[in-house]
Design a protein around this nucleic acid. Structure first.
Lengths: 231, 231
DNA sequence: GTACCTTTGTGAAGCTATGCACAAAGTGCG
DNA sequence: CGCACTTTGTGCATAGCTTCACAAAGGTAC
């Protein structure tokens, strides 16, 4: 390893590690002991050279002529991602999405634990979900502190999201996963990741339209702006 | 425009267009008529030079010294993304996540319409959701054809996802949004986008761990592999 | 019409990520 | 032991994305 472990794994690599981890867990379940970069790359749906380069950023964990020990690699990636420790997660907003998230199997997988649920609607407060009672949003700060929450998932309507973010940041949270369809404004040092369902659909629609255009040979014209505006 | 409209908008740009569109809709609601790249960039949370270059790929729709006409730009981006036409979307898997998706406001926003719901569980079939009755998965192919579905959302358990994908592709679908935690194998020409809730959490955990390491000055050692394996 | 101001659109530079291709390192057989 | 085979780890070239910085273009005031 030359430039390897010197703290600084490319973001693109970090984003793929969970993918490799899942593929490895699949192999482990089927009892596979070692795997080559080629086979693992196929299972993860990436190019094998990229996979090897990604793994080389973590260290030199393979054996030439053999491949990677599945269990050992699972451990190394888990450790790098911080999954060997327990993360207390709070979900704010127990609507349809919040419920889905709380129940989502992979969500509560190794390393993550739903430690608190919040909602503003008093008719929901007290309800039990995955063994947790829903707390009222008024108790946000105290519950976060009491239960050692370090990651907050925002699953509220868009209008409430910024306010929730401000409060949890004031309470010391620096990692937020945002499902609300708004751009959160946060101070430096706070990480926000956004998952946006409609964005993904729109990107698909773009490509689907491209295919249709190519088939019919009729890319829509920039013309009828006036008509559209009248409607 | 020099290399502008010649069909070929960078993926990175396409991925940001929905973001701009949302920011613009927010401005439109507040009655703003025109906006500068600088202000729009702030609203969308990006660098203004990047915003301008992104928009320049669509054409030259701004006015120097003034900015962009909000309504006009909304129309142009919508058109480019294919949102001026109606997309019939089917959701396969009406569990917690499927229900959340069907009810998600932004999901049924301009351009998209939930046209079919499927589940394998007969106790769910017939149930009504957002004005649609849930169909049994057996009717997948015929309903997709009858209702002109062109985009399929897979919200099934991981084990069922590949099989669902194979069937909808055989039925002519070429755009899939996959929420199941598996890598789908699909033929060329089929677009798959994956939304993975646990992946996002894992990336957050990585960064959160980094911050913690920096504070305590104690990056976890590669040591105790044996201990962990014994557990 | 002219001078000044604002803001776009883009050339060019720098940075990051990808993928090829191969030397180095290990396995295993005769 | 030596040779043939496998597979990793990485130097290098290429492709793609981001950011800077500024000329060109339009608006406004007088």
């Amino acid at each position: 390893m030359s430039q390897a472990r010197e703290r600084g794994i490319p973001d693109a690599t970090v984003a793929r590690l969970p993918l490799y981890l899942r593929a490895l867990n699949g192999l482990a379940e089927r009892g596979t002991a070692t795997v080559s970069s080629e086979d693992l790359a196929v299972a993860a749906g990436v190019n094998s050279a990229k996979l090897r380069k990604d793994l080389s950023h973590l260290g030199s964990y393979g054996t030439r002529g053999v491949g990677y020990d599945v269990q050992y690699l699972i451990y190394q990636i888990s450790r790098e991602l911080g999954l060997t420790q327990d993360w207390a997660v709070a979900i704010v907003g127990v609507g349809n999405l919040g419920r889905a998230l709380a129940n989502y199997g992979g969500f509560v997988s190794r390393g993550f634990r739903v430690a608190a649920l919040f909602d503003a609607d008093r008719s929901v407060v007290g309800e039990r979900l995955v063994g947790m009672a829903v707390d009222h949003i008024d108790a946000l700060e105290s519950v976060i502190e009491d239960r050692g929450v370090s990651i907050v998932v925002i699953a509220t309507p868009g209008a409430a999201a910024q306010q929730v973010a401000d409060r949890v940041i004031a309470a010391g949270i620096t990692s937020i996963l945002n499902f609300a369809p708004v751009v959160l404004t946060v101070p430096d040092g706070v990480d926000v990741r956004k998952v946006d369902l409609s964005t993904e659909l729109q990107i698909l629609a773009f490509h689907e339209q491209r295919k249709a255009d190519r088939d019919t040979g009729s890319p829509m014209m920039a013309g009828d702006w006036a008509e559209v505006m009248d409607a």
